[in-house]
Design a protein around this nucleic acid. Structure first.
Lengths: 211, 211
DNA sequence: ACGAAAAGTCAACACCAGTACACAAACCAT
DNA sequence: ATGGTTTGTGTACTGGTGTTGACTTTTCGT
């Protein structure tokens, strides 16, 4: 009866169908905590009890989603790191590719953004530590910059956290912008670029207040 | 039977008891969307149906909470605006009083932070527009600074958004820090100060890329 | 092609959800 | 003190929830 809904590409396993359905629900506004196992399975076209063939619990599903989403995030960092560009263009290029990633994987970014402060403790913590790790990596990356390679670890983390906060806001803007409005997209990208340029502009004359 | 739980100061009306109980639930980890009317009323010591004597719906309760919480936020801005300080100390003082506010009203700040990306659309939007307004006010405030009074509106909003993003992160850190750990508190405040100093440090040599 | 393992089905369960309605108590201005 | 308004109670109903166990179908390596 209630089948299809998404274009089944034959080999598409039910497990990943469940995951995508969950992501889609979160994108539609429902928080993961308030999501119903029955409706979820219903939207995939299986009976509620079949859920347990793929996940031990709802929380396990959530953790799998966190894994997936953070993996996407990490892929970006790697790409940004490997394609080492001239200092001048690095901000522009990084912001551009990041924004394109967000547009390409809205469900994943949406999920981490929403559930970072969501109701399920396990997910919150998983995402939180994931982002902390993200900040640390960014800090060490920044440490390789010509101007920043004399900074101490504390200040590097400080600036990394500042950047991550700005990027979070940018992400939210990108996600809530209409899909086809490329002008809006560019506007957001430009603003984000400016923010990062501003931050980097300050670094030459920075002197840490305390050891 | 199931009475008290909170120290009833006699005149405490049930309506506000419901509101505080809801805030407390959110602080305990449950998202507002996943909160049960029955449990909520139960924790206040009234029967479920009595809820409707005070609120037309759960969503109405949520909106009332948004109102309250944003009011708290606005109070801070006013205080920061009125007590005009010498430029040197203004960052230190603002961060300090903000952090103290967060510590004093953790439930309100927690609620805004959690439900900003939460599942109930009405709350999300109310909070979102509230924060947008917050950013705008901050932008015009910044425009009064000696260095910034030549900036155009777009760039002012850009920097305001950057600051708000950083403050959000700071708020989260303050909320999840243990209550009595004053050393941690000071550390967070110091980092936040640094971030704002860094941002302001960049402003003198800023030149906007585009009109 | 066979047979075990994986995936899905069915019926049933005990429970918790929101809410309608009629009634009782508490409050408070007159 | 009275009587209307507000607030809280009790019962009851409908429908959704997660999870169980035993059963059937499908899948897939050999």
């Amino acid at each position: 009866m209630a089948t299809t809904k998404t274009t089944k590409t034959k080999g598409e396993t039910t497990r990943s169908a469940l995951m995508e359905a969950a992501l889609r629900q979160v994108a539609r506004g429902r928080s993961f905590e308030a999501m119903s196992l029955r409706k979820l399975t219903g939207s995939v076209g299986i009976v509620p009890t079949a859920f347990y063939r793929h996940f031990e619990s709802m929380e396990a599903l959530g953790l799998a989603l966190v894994d997936d989403s953070l993996r996407t995030l990490r892929r970006i960092m790697r790409q940004a790191r490997e394609g080492d560009l001239p200092q001048e263009q690095i901000i522009r290029a990084s912001v551009q590719t990041y924004a394109e990633y967000v547009r390409a994987n809205p469900l994943h970014f949406n999920f981490v953004l929403r559930e970072r402060y969501g109701g399920v403790a396990a997910l919150r913590h998983a995402i939180s530590t994931g982002i902390q790790l993200f900040v640390s990596e960014l800090a060490t990356d920044l440490g390789r910059f010509p101007i920043l390679n004399t900074w101490n670890a504390t200040d590097l983390r400080m600036i990394a956290a500042l950047i991550v906060g700005a990027v979070m806001e940018t992400t939210e803007l990108l996600l809530e912008a209409p899909e086809n409005d490329t002008e809006r997209f560019n506007e957001i990208v430009r603003t984000s670029e400016k923010q990062l340029r501003l931050v980097m502009l300050a670094t030459p004359q920075w002197r840490s207040g305390k050891g």
